[in-house]
Design a protein around this nucleic acid. Structure first.
Lengths: 145, 145
DNA sequence: ATTAAAATCATACTTTCGGGTGATGCGACT
DNA sequence: AGTCGCATCACCCGAAAGTATGATTTTAAT
């Protein structure tokens, strides 16, 4: 985490420097200061959105909305019974929504390999061989809605 | 959602206007342009983070339906709506139980290739790319329990 | 401060899925 | 008699999923 923050800071610093260089260029070319400021504002807003998403990490995806909610109740105790970690649970949830490993990786902002590791561990803990089996079993066990 | 986006846009516009006013003030007071730019950058980064978080917030679902496999009832009419044949339905059902294509083939005493054909056709008819997605969608559509 | 668990990522390899294409046989319907 | 839908199967190929192993980094608990 420290590392990420550091890299973001560096990226930000680099961006600012770059912008400063550009600044003089633009100004001598008589581009209005307002437009320039607007561009900076937009750019950093986008950057902010990006940073915000990165830092908060979790963001469930729709894919196929039509979300029907059952009398399902999230129960950490049940997860603990199977030794399923928070991250693994997130992966399981997205799996159940029909996402591919790559899509899950993109959603959680981690690499494909990481998701493969998580899912492999899930299969061990749920004693299943495939994702479809894992999802089915997790539903039976009321681990997911 | 449109409303939120609109309000954010307005807020942004207001901010920009405000900043433009400030701009002249600051400039006549000989505050360095670099510092000013940096402030804008930081401000809009923060704004971006805020907007990003707001936009990705998942709202809780209404507790409308409290049912899921309770009221399931096999309905050939629904299948027909999607053009799903008897055999394809069987494959879909076994798929949802977590069986691999090979296992389904063994269960139905046909070849693996046949199951592949059936499942491919299923994906077409359900407009899905993966078996997990197909199963999920079929459950939503109440095609299977 | 140390330690244990969790999370991350990589590389290499095997298996399973899924798409595309084409072919055959069978019953039903007209 | 012809055609249409369904079921069956084959072959190829690329993509995705899954296994195994090892490593580093974060986080949480003691």
């Amino acid at each position: 985490m420290k590392r990420t923050i550091l890299s973001y800071s560096l990226a930000l610093a680099a961006l600012i420097s770059m912008l400063k260089l550009l600044e003089y260029r633009f100004l001598v070319h008589t581009l209005s200061l307002e437009i320039y400021l607007g561009l900076i504002a937009i750019l950093f807003t986008v950057l902010g959105v990006w940073v915000g998403l990165k830092l908060t990490q979790t963001k469930p995806l729709p894919v196929s909305q039509l979300n029907y909610q059952v009398d399902f109740q999230f129960d950490p105790a049940r997860l603990e019974k199977f030794g399923i970690s928070k991250r693994e649970y997130q992966v399981l949830d997205l799996m159940a929504r029909g996402l591919s490993n790559q899509e899950i990786a993109d959603t959680l902002f981690v690499s494909l390999n990481t998701i493969k590791t998580h899912s492999s561990n899930l299969f061990l803990k749920l004693d299943t061989k495939r994702r479809t089996q894992a999802v089915q079993k997790a539903k039976e066990l009321r681990l997911i809605p």
